[in-house]
């Protein structure tokens, strides 16, 4: 049941998208999001959709995996679309009770849904094609200048990678504890909201305790392997920007510029 969670999932591969430097991919996602929020018209969205589609096609990630990842946000997408649908002013098409649907409302609803879906899919492109370790390493390098401002960049990156490392273990653990309590007759799907919340206790208490225990043991093991903060650390895999990274970044900037220009002309 919990095995369907795609958070932090990584699909190993050898495509150009996979091989891009994680820093490049992080910057591209930022450019992509900026462009998405600047796009205002069908044309703008069309351009963004082509970019996203091209990236997905090149990466070799299956569309079904992308769609499966969208499940958790379906509710939010529908809700925001509905709000946009009913709360826009303009040319009224249908009217009933206190609701009126306008031409502008329909457009806003569709574009808002598209924006959210494309936003999530774009970030998936980053996490699906970049191993968590590489992702945090990239982030650490990008944020390195902040070290001058006493921001604990290395520690934050290490925390993030440890969290990502523990996610699969904790998911497995949750499954196991749930089964064990079910075997003792616990039921998680009956009763009202309060009953259901109470029923979570036999899962949450052991889960918290075991997370603390694991974190403690992991910290000891890291210490035993000479971990002593970021100072003087070297890397097995050193990141180097290649030609393709520069090319991808230039392309990204051009797309953003294009979208901004289009928006200027009301497109």
């Amino acid at each position: 049941m919990l095995k369907d969670v795609t958070l932090g999932q990584y699909f190993p591969g050898d495509s150009v998208v996979h091989r891009l430097d994680p820093r490049t991919k992080i910057l591209l996602v930022i450019l992509y999001i900026a462009a998405l929020f600047n796009a205002e018209s069908w044309v703008g969205y069309g351009v963004m959709l082509v970019c996203l589609g091209a990236a997905i096609a090149v990466s070799g990630i299956r569309l079904s995996s992308m769609v499966r990842g969208l499940k958790p946000i379906v509710f939010i997408v529908i809700l925001t679309s509905l709000l946009n649908l009913f709360y826009s002013t303009g040319e009224v098409l249908v009217q009933f009770w206190i609701f009126k649907i306008t031409r502008e409302g329909i457009k806003a609803a569709i574009l808002m849904a598209a924006r959210l879906v494309m936003l999530v899919m774009g970030t998936f492109m980053l996490t699906y094609t970049t191993s968590p370790i590489m992702l945090t390493y990239g982030l650490e390098l990008l944020l390195n200048p902040l070290k001058k401002l006493k921001v604990p960049v290395h520690e934050l990156a290490m925390m993030m990678s440890m969290a990502l490392r523990l996610i699969p273990t904790l998911i497995e653990e949750t499954d196991k504890i749930m089964s064990a309590q079910k075997a003792r007759g616990a039921e998680f799907d009956t009763g009202n909201l309060i009953d259901k919340a109470k029923a979570m206790l036999p899962i949450l208490v052991p889960l918290f305790l075991s997370s603390f225990r694991r974190a403690d043991e992991l910290a000891t093991a890291m210490e035993a392997r000479c971990y002593h903060g970021g100072e003087g650390r070297t890397r097995l895999n050193v990141l180097k920007l290649a030609f393709r990274d520069y090319a991808a970044l230039v392309l990204g900037v051009l797309v953003l510029a294009g979208i901004v220009v289009l928006a200027r002309f009301g497109l």
Binding site: I177, S179, A180, A183, P202, V205, P206, L209
Partner: peptide
């Protein structure tokens, strides 16, 4: 009745 591996980790 089913007793899982390391059942002590299910005490709550």
């Amino acid at each position: 009745g089913l007793v899982f591996q390391y059942p002590e980790y299910q005490l709550f």
